[in-house]
Amino acid sequence: MDLKLKIWRQKNASDKGKMVNYDMKNVSPDMSFLEMLDVLNNELIEKGEEPVAFDHDCREGICGMCSLQINGRPHGPDTAITTCQLHMRKFKDGDTIYIEPFRSKAFPVIKDLIVDRSSFDRIQHAGGYISVNTSGNTQDANAIPVNKDDADKAFDAATCIGCGACVAACKNSSAMLFVSAKVSQFALLPQGQIERKTRAENMVAQMDAEGFGACTNTGACAAECPKEISLTNIARLNREFLKSKFG
């Protein structure tokens, strides 16, 4: 199929950037979206032009590295997948596809479609960890009883790959779904209790310092999350934060 691509091109972080049009011919519907961009880049290199820079790594939907706002949606026009899992059969011959970087003050563009998501790392550093004694007498985790319901909820939260689709989808570019998943996976388990009181407080403080917006509960984040992280986690984060302040 033939496609018209409108891709955000930006030389570096200080460049203003603009949308550039590209025509793609004979695109196979069986290609992944990233493979289609690989083909475009080969064509650009052959023409002596600068290839389009975009993030990717595992191409299996588990690393959280790929991003892209495709036709206005993070990871494109499908649910519960990452961009690397998106295939060209989701588009029609003659379609125009807008490809933009995830937009947020806290995700500055480095080049073209690559954004700096290290703000997520700094939020993790602020509280997304547990203290475990590793001096040789560590208790076997399997010896600590965990309620099945709590274990399931914690595991669901832990499936967050930190891709930033929640931020990209939210009209406020709020990181609440990401932070709530990271807080929930520990708050629900015995191992996470030691830092429980300070975790939500510190991670929310870092989230605000990074410049993310506030959650207005529109639900756009959960709808676009490739790992289907639930909004119930945001309510839990609110509870954890309020408990740390009023508890």
Binding site: R103, S104, K105, S173
Partner: peptide
Amino acid sequence: SRPIKYFK
């Protein structure tokens, strides 16, 4: 929190 808006 989003100084540059999306085109689409």
